[in-house]
Nucleic acid binder design. Sequence first.
DNA 1: CTGAAAGCGCTTACAG
DNA 2: CTGAAAGCGCTTACAG
Lengths: 347, 347
Amino acid sequence: MYVSLKDVAARAGVSFQTASKVLNGNTAAASAATAERVLRVAAELGYVPNALARGLVRRSSVTIGVLVDDLADAALVRFVDGAQAALAAQGHAVLLTAVTPGEPAADALRKLLEHRVDGVLVVAPGIERDEGVARVLRPGLPLVGLNRMPGADAVLLGSDHRETGRLAAEHLLELGHREIATVVGPRGRHVVRRRLEGFGTALAAAGVALPEHRIVESGWSAATAYAAAAALLDRAGEPITAVFAQNDEMASGVLRLLADRGVRVPEEVSVVGCDDLPASRFLVPALTTIAVPFTETGERAAAVLLDLIAGKPAPRRELLPVRLVVRASTGPPPASDLPTIDPREQP
Amino acid sequence: MYVSLKDVAARAGVSFQTASKVLNGNTAAASAATAERVLRVAAELGYVPNALARGLVRRSSVTIGVLVDDLADAALVRFVDGAQAALAAQGHAVLLTAVTPGEPAADALRKLLEHRVDGVLVVAPGIERDEGVARVLRPGLPLVGLNRMPGADAVLLGSDHRETGRLAAEHLLELGHREIATVVGPRGRHVVRRRLEGFGTALAAAGVALPEHRIVESGWSAATAYAAAAALLDRAGEPITAVFAQNDEMASGVLRLLADRGVRVPEEVSVVGCDDLPASRFLVPALTTIAVPFTETGERAAAVLLDLIAGKPAPRRELLPVRLVVRASTGPPPASDLPTIDPREQP
DNA sequence: CTGAAAGCGCTTACAG
DNA sequence: CTGAAAGCGCTTACAG
């Protein structure tokens, strides 16, 4: 079905080794006339080199394995998007595997190794405590993670989660809020703890308490955050004026609950999200959030992985900056006379 | 770096061919004792078969190429998610390539062919008019498209776009709307034309006109739909009571514009979207939309592709059903006394 | 039940 | 400038 190197060589009247060299751009390997002939015949015959055969002898598949938690997660898929684009630009193919719920991530990783990927990029915070992963990894395998992996020798890339929490807290403090709650992701997760830590620390520094009952745990989805926020509001006598949700989807769940309860945002309650997904700008009201550079992080992860593969120096760890994006979902608390400090972004 | 079959065989005291057979589950190839020994040694040594070498001789890479327009597109990525899961469940790896804007899709496809993918799944409506794609395709290459490809011998899977438009129109008609507009995607696109056709035909059947100035073109994004809807409302004397947006993101842009203009939804204007992304349920107000079965379509595409590869009979074309999901963004028009007909979904 | 041969489609020294 | 040898790590008939 496919034309082989030997087919091309035979038609061009050269040995297949010479054809190989010409097709690989080795100009010293043949006369200009021979080279031209080989190239022309290859084009005529529709020659498509066999990367499997090439990979076997070169011991490089020019393929990168990407292990992702869940493609339905809007944030994770943006990492993958950035990485894929950067990798493709350098001629590397991407072998994509999602972690199948209920099946060990190590199995998915092993599949990647069978295909002899040149390196692996892990975008799967869900396996940050999975001890099985390190066991299938080969020592020396170039590995970049956007999450921790116990026991694995990986470069760790990401954003500064503590800073994320701090930015959210300081924004609310500057607006004059003192009665603040937060809807957080699963508390076992590293990112959840760090964001909460940064948030709580900044509040504490301003003398604002964040009692445990104002920290409500939720899944990462809008639906779970909706329920968590409902539980929060249902506590009698909670005069909360601001809520920080640990991602934008959760924030949209909070926004929706507030709307359902007839609570005006931001007049009565302010809401801050985290991620800055494209959709967040078009929520009603437009969501104030902490922007996480997903695509850039994915691109950077690809670049670091390629450096690792090329044997170039690479950092062991790198944090990309986050930033506050002020929109319409935050304002001064009801009782306050403080003016809104930050300029609003226009749609 | 990797342990080879020969390493395993040497340690187990058998020929590497016998080791190969045992490791491939050929029970007739060796005694139980020999098999046990080979398997044990392979596990001890951490043997990981080389899929490149295997693929070379078997002429199958057990790899499927997936060509996608844009991973940032929430709808397309759901197709990919469904397909990836179904493919992985059958032991197939996924080689993922996004179409790089400005670069020919044929180049991306060629890369996939170099890796000798067993089949290709195309999730790229953006290339539905690209003549270059068919030229790189090999005859006989199992190919499934979620969009058309001129000149390519592909199975076409998708949803019924005319029906989608019809469902939106009939829902609005039943609510009593007569002054209806629609925000559509790029009009060159097949899906845009079909949805518009179904929408317009259903309206016409009810004696409701859809004049050209009530059809506003937009990109697929919320931002472009926001601008398009603004242009629509800015037309003097348009007594519009309902808008159908051709995807949920556009609908969220319309919702946001309406909120910015102080127009109440659905009391003054009803909005219907299309796709039913998870986020749409949490918009304010929750979006009425036509649900498109993205994940299921991706799964089905994978199944059909695998059938094609296995030489089993497969359909040439298949449409998956869409359905109306009624939420809070639609209601009777302002002047109407009609009751709301459809029950609302609870969050 | 086990092994040796041949070959998948290439690349890379090595000769000439 | 060109070619022939060797080998990448496997699988698959074919013998015994």
